[in-house]
């Protein structure tokens, strides 16, 4: 066997893994999968962002029962594996009458978890704004809402750009889990195409597409971090 592999001509490796004809044939399927992946990822990132901001404010400023509930939410959703949550939402909730589409289930699972992580990021950002800023805002008489919206959040958001971008990258990656609940995302379409073509080229293509989409974001985090460090924060 070993000698067989060694004897394999280089051309046949290309035929197997980087087959041009298969690539061209399956590309439309992959692109439709990519569209779904991006839609799902962006939806979850936006919902997670908004949810995270609300949770962070509740955790910092809400009164006792609501604050404890928020803390519990954040801890639970940072502990549960997304795949488990996804399977529960998609396969278990129908038993209590809540039936979500595969997109709905995946978007919910990703957003719920992303909101929990984002909440901790926003909290750290708000806490990193110097005390003097809160005090100056109070001293000129701003309402608590205006203190947040005009003074604290604009500064906190700048601080959290790098970790929030990192979190968004994770959400984008985790969209691939949605193929488990039969969502026609990039990974699902790639496996489909592989089966149809009886050739793994679509899988390789999908991997490359994921990298092409996410690597610029990974670079961006590095740039943001350098810029923040240069400002001496």
């Amino acid at each position: 066997m070993a000698t067989n592999v060694e004897a394999l001509p280089v051309m046949s490796i290309f035929d197997t893994f980087l087959n041009w004809k298969v690539f061209v044939q399956t590309l439309p399927l992959l692109l439709s999968g990519l569209t779904t992946t991006l839609t799902l990822g962006v939806t979850a990132i936006i919902l997670g962002f908004i949810g995270g901001l609300v949770l962070a404010l509740l955790r910092l400023y809400a009164n006792s029962p609501l604050r404890q509930i928020t803390v519990a939410y954040i801890d639970v959703f940072r502990s549960i594996p997304i795949l488990v949550l996804l399977v529960v939402i998609y396969y278990a909730l129908p038993f209590v009458g809540l039936r979500l589409s595969s997109f709905g289930a995946a978007a919910s699972a990703l957003s719920l978890v992303s909101a929990a992580y984002s909440a901790e990021i926003f909290r750290a950002g708000i806490e990193a704004v110097p005390r003097g800023q809160f005090e100056a805002a109070r001293a000129i008489g701003l309402s608590s809402w205006r203190r947040m919206s005009d003074v604290v959040l604009p500064q906190a958001l700048r601080i959290v750009i790098p970790p929030i971008t990192s979190n968004s990258i994770n959400v984008m990656k985790d969209t691939a889990l949605a193929s488990v609940v039969a969502m026609p995302d990039l990974l699902k379409q790639a496996t489909q195409a592989q089966a149809l073509a009886a050739n793994p080229t679509p899988l390789i293509s999908a991997a490359v597409i994921y990298i092409l989409i996410l690597m610029p974001l990974v670079r961006l985090v590095g740039v943001f971090e350098k810029r923040l460090a240069a400002r001496g924060r």
Partner: peptide
């Protein structure tokens, strides 16, 4: 709101 304050570290809004 009738009382203004000036701080040791200025506390201007940097943004």
């Amino acid at each position: 709101t009738e009382v203004g304050m000036v701080f040791q570290n200025f506390n201007l809004f940097p943004h």
